[in-house]
Simulated scan of single mutants.
Amino acid sequence: MGGQVILMIATSLDGYIADSAGGVAWLEPFDSEEVGMAAFLAVVDVVVLGRRTYDQLRAMDEPWPYAGKRVEVLTRRPLDDSPPPGVRATGDVQATVRQARQAGRTVWICGGRSVIAPLLAAGLIDEVELYTVPVILGRGIPLWEPGAQRYRWNLLSVEGFRNGLVRSCYQPRNEEQTGFC
């Protein structure tokens, strides 16, 4: 049986995943156990992220958040001298995700656009779990590539949280509705 590939990501009300400097500190006031991140991570086998996201995580003065998980970093450059256990670089995100899916793994596409766009184009995203954060940034890095191809999705669920976040879950149109949401 194949695995599942989930894009779980947060955006501002105006559709940005990072501010104009690439920062995500604006998300910190909305970090809450209420949204179920621990439960989600418990079912994730593989985390896929872009190089900028990896570098941001490494620069934080906190423990590696994905200890015990396989982490694939989309990059053509070598990683730092001592990446955390289970972390490796990949130059072909589509092949990496296909292999994990075929092996029955649950894959979390953590971001950013350089990771999302090729997976979306190849039809390799089974579910989008979108957290809308009640902040307007005005500018920044948008979730979707400008001029991206049109895709249609079915809404599975919508949930609001006390802190103002809204989680919307979608699957590609005509897919069986058996997601994490």
Rank of each mutant, 00 (worst) to 15 (best):
G3V: 13
G3W: 13
Q4Y: 15
Q4T: 11
V5K: 00
I9W: 06
I9H: 05
I9V: 15
A10S: 12
T11Y: 02
L13S: 02
G15D: 07
I17C: 01
I17E: 00
I17N: 00
D19E: 11
G22F: 13
G22W: 13
G22R: 14
G23Y: 10
W26A: 05
W26I: 14
L27I: 13
P29K: 07
F30H: 03
F30C: 02
F30D: 00
D31H: 10
E34S: 15
V35I: 14
M37F: 13
A38K: 13
F40H: 06
A42P: 02
D45P: 01
D45A: 03
V48G: 00
V48I: 09
L49Q: 03
R51M: 08
R52M: 08
R52T: 15
Y54R: 04
D55M: 07
Q56L: 15
L57S: 01
L57C: 01
R58Q: 10
R58Y: 05
R58D: 04
A59V: 12
A59G: 04
A59K: 07
A59R: 09
M60T: 10
D61F: 05
P63C: 03
P63I: 10
W64L: 05
W64H: 03
P65D: 07
P65K: 06
K69F: 07
R70T: 14
E72I: 13
V73Q: 01
V73T: 04
R76D: 06
R77E: 09
D80F: 11
S82D: 11
R88H: 14
R88T: 08
A89I: 11
A89K: 05
T90A: 04
G91M: 13
G91E: 12
D92E: 13
V93E: 01
A95H: 08
V97Y: 01
V97H: 01
V97L: 02
R98F: 12
A100Q: 07
R101F: 06
Q102Y: 09
C110V: 12
G112A: 08
S114L: 09
S114F: 15
S114K: 12
V115D: 02
V115A: 03
A117Y: 04
A117I: 06
P118A: 09
A121H: 08
G123N: 08
G123M: 15
L124H: 06
L124R: 08
D126G: 03
V128F: 10
V128I: 15
E129R: 15
L130Y: 09
Y131P: 00
Y131D: 03
V133M: 01
I136C: 06
L137S: 03
L137P: 00
G138D: 10
R139W: 06
G140P: 03
I141Y: 02
I141L: 06
P142D: 08
L143I: 09
W144M: 11
P146Q: 08
P146K: 15
P146C: 04
G147Y: 07
A148L: 05
Y151T: 11
W153D: 01
L156M: 08
S157I: 07
S157D: 12
S157A: 11
E159M: 14
G160F: 09
R162C: 07
N163A: 04
G164K: 14
L165Y: 03
V166H: 02
R167S: 07
C169G: 04
Q171C: 15
R173Q: 15
E175H: 15
E175F: 09
E175S: 14
Q177T: 14
Q177P: 06
G179Q: 09
F180P: 00
